[in-house]
Design a protein around this nucleic acid. Sequence first.
DNA 1: ATTTATGCAAACGTTTTGCATGTGT
DNA 2: ACACATGCAAAACGTTTGCATAAAT
Lengths: 159, 159
Amino acid sequence: VPRDSDHVHAAPALPAALRGAGRRVTRQRREIWDALVAEPDRHLSADEIAERVRRRLPLVNPSTVYRTLDVLVDEGLLLRTRLGADRAFYEPAREHPHHHLVCERCGRVDHVHEEALGDLAGRLDAAAGFALGGAELTFFGLCADCRDSEPGSRTTPGS
Amino acid sequence: VPRDSDHVHAAPALPAALRGAGRRVTRQRREIWDALVAEPDRHLSADEIAERVRRRLPLVNPSTVYRTLDVLVDEGLLLRTRLGADRAFYEPAREHPHHHLVCERCGRVDHVHEEALGDLAGRLDAAAGFALGGAELTFFGLCADCRDSEPGSRTTPGS
DNA sequence: ATTTATGCAAACGTTTTGCATGTGT
DNA sequence: ACACATGCAAAACGTTTGCATAAAT
């Protein structure tokens, strides 16, 4: 079971990536980025990110967090997902496109590589003449741990 | 190209479905349902539904619309999707589970039957030991019409 | 008569914005 | 010095809720 302890996109130097795009490297941006890479397998909401950043930089403003997340997504450093919820979750971008398995019992979120799902592009082309670009695929069900062990505590999306 | 002019879940008699569940049949609920079945291939937001209902029943309150949509989703008469956006879209429930192809050029939304995507349940089980329940799959790309014809006008999600 | 649904207004959680100030380059 | 980023407060957005009234059963 590839529980996806993947190589995180070569942990790109944040400063290089930002400066290369004509953007500036600030303390806030570094802290926000650091919070994300510190928990690369979790899917953090803007709020959770703000909370973690506040531990080191107590005065960050929420709007700065939102603006920075937008920038990092635009630069391709972060991935934004909705996981079927009404708010966004963020994770460091990875080398291979992947999708999410949300356990309805324990809340855990796993990854599947897109290629493990078969030739979806080919199937969509064949079925509808559709030229696949991106996709946001969220699967709900029971994770390997929960599928047989009966009792379980419900949680919110995390790792 | 099965452009999905599917049979809409046998257009269940709304009154029967509601009364059978101990719920009441009101003018508002009938109008909301009618607005949805009048455009079975579109994906309407709560707001767009309210607008259509107001044409026949000008005083409906938005909260009534939201509450009714919740009821109809709970009763399995409607499907709720997010289509990668930050608000919900509704469509009459269909017989077969399906997923969405969103054209990034013209905004059109097509359907693919789940079975046309291959044995996803089997693949997820094999890859991660995951027991698939439901899924919300949104594919982005170019629809058959847009994929070669260059010029196009961007629109919001519709049929 | 009873119980459920509606309208209204207010609140909610998340995210966005305008503008003056502060900071990286 | 300049452009860009931040803090702040306010607002926008989609949605939910409490409560009195109205309507369906």
